[in-house]
Design a protein around this nucleic acid. Structure first.
Length: 461
DNA sequence: CAATCCCGCCAACAA
DNA sequence: TTGTTGGCGGGATTG
């Protein structure tokens, strides 16, 4: 498949098998045009599809150090069916999503496009988009279409959430469900209390909750059609941090609070557990944006989350925005979300030293882009919220540090397969893969220069 | 075993 | 009806 150029036809040695072995679902496999003993002619629907495949392979390689690239070509080597759940995490996906769209020039985002670009099922995109929207980063424009608002909108959105939260704090709840749900709980949102929660007390409640429901329907929230969850849940979750003094919250607690609330046993709804699952999802994407961070409660061994979305910045906004409390552990190619470091080691190998500089490079690019965007949003920003005083994680408005970007050792994990592809050329024995990489590289560069408005990256090998 | 949370079925909706 | 959205929870992974 020699440099496909604009062609989408390739000759791949074992490529299909490899791809299939990796279980890349949701990625359209190239069509097999011809088959020979050791290679096949395949055709990708589009260059993008070809890119998706390469990206997947790239990710696979990075996460499977045990299988050196050189050996990738090995035929049907019953590759250990190495499935790594973390590669599929919502957090990682979100990170990828952001780095893909948090670029200058991106105005609208197509769900289908996102799904294919990221190589995931559509369903996953909804998850991410919903929480991003609830924070103001995105806004639904139409079916299948979202508009990118940028992180500049976040402060505003959060402020609104806070006010809203405080306002309703005294009376009603935001809860909007259909079923049970209490009425109004004057219960201030606090982490304490509840312990009851055991679904032991249910029964006899239908009545009460039923009435409560009626009230609700008639009175308040009429709008919330099916305003069911995720988005709303996300906002409520965030409110817990913004409208309360609690610093750490475990998802378990959050789930209880965000439900009917401790007081009312109407919560019998066994769903507390179910809700937690959703909170895990949310927590993952929020932490991928560094809005929150997972830590272990000092006292209890239990894991909890800490809000750090709008942390006060030290004097100038030097490079401190990257500073991941434990950057060491957040090695490239791993999930940031789950602060479980253990497995990170796996990838630490040589790949790491290769990718590090890449990340830095990409980081710099990102900053430049961000700066531009920031200038724009700056104009319309809510006066009182000085951008300089907040930090949004890797996408934080780092006005200054650009110059020293390359020096910054504490770069937060950033799946940089894009750059990876352009700089790190795996030693494939397999000619086809090499070609594929070349092809991908080319696509990436054109995309980069086109979208990011920069000149092609200088290869450095 | 417990904590996480991916996956995708399938029900509301919308076109 | 077909196409979108996106609850929801089974059960695989991890810890």
């Amino acid at each position: 498949m020699t440099p496909l150029g604009s062609s989408t036809t390739s000759r791949c040695h074992m490529l299909l098998k490899e791809i299939e072995a990796i279980k890349i679902k949701s990625i359209r496999l190239p069509r097999r045009i011809g088959q020979h003993s050791d290679f096949a002619f395949v055709e990708f629907g589009t260059k993008q599809e070809a890119n998706n495949v390469v990206q997947a392979l790239s990710r696979f390689h990075r996460s499977t150090p045990s299988i050196p690239c050189n050996h990738m070509a090995l035929p049907s080597s019953e590759s250990k069916e190495s499935y790594c759940r973390k590669q599929k995490s919502l957090g990682l996906l979100c990170t990828n999503f952001l780095s893909l769209y948090n670029q200058d020039g991106i105005e609208t985002i197509g769900l289908d496009d996102a799904a294919t670009r990221l190589g995931v099922e559509r369903r996953r995109i909804y998850d991410i988009v919903n929480v991003l929207e609830s924070v103001g980063v995105l806004a639904r424009k139409a079916k299948n279409r979202y508009s990118w608002k940028g992180f500049g909108e976040v402060p505003k959105a959060l402020e609104e959430l806070r006010e809203e939260g405080l306002r309703e704090n005294g009376n009603d709840y935001t809860r909007v469900s259909d079923d049970d749900e209490d009425e109004n709980n004057p219960t201030p949102i606090t982490s304490s209390q509840e312990e009851k929660t055991n679904p032991s007390s249910h029964t006899r409640f239908s009545m009460a909750s039923k009435t409560g429901k009626v009230l609700k329907l008639n009175a308040i929230l009429v709008d919330n059609r099916k305003e069911k969850s995720l988005g709303l849940l996300t906002q409520n979750f965030i409110k817990l941090f913004l409208c309360t003094d609690v610093d750490l919250i475990s998802l378990e607690e959050a789930a209880k609070i965000l439900l009917g609330d401790a007081r009312d046993p109407s919560t019998m709804r066994s769903n507390s557990a179910a809700k937690v699952r959703r909170l895990y999802d949310i927590a993952n994407v929020l932490s991928s944006m560094n809005f929150i961070e997972k830590v272990h409660h000092p006292d209890t061994r239990k894991p909890a989350f800490r809000w750090l979305g709008m942390k006060e910045k030290l004097e100038d906004g030097s490079a401190n925005c990257f500073v991941p409390i434990e950057s060491k552990k957040r090695t490239f190619g791993t999930e940031i979300t789950n602060t479980s470091f253990k497995r990170t080691k796996l990838i630490d190998g040589n790949l790491n030293q290769i990718t590090k500089p890449l990340m830095q490079m990409q980081m710099q690019v990102k900053r430049e882009v961000l700066e531009n965007e920031f200038d724009k949003t700056n104009l319309e920003r809510d006066s009182r919220e000085c951008p300089k005083s907040y930090q949004f994680g890797p996408f934080a408005p780092v006005s200054v540090s650009k110059a020293i970007a390359a020096e910054n050792k504490k770069v937060k994990q950033v799946h940089a397969w894009e750059s990876l592809a352009s700089t790190f050329r795996p030693e494939y024995h397999n000619q086809a893969l090499r070609d594929l990489f070349d092809h991908y590289l080319e696509a990436w560069q054109s995309w980069y220069s086109e979208v990011a408005g920069k000149k092609p990256i200088q290869l450095m090998f």
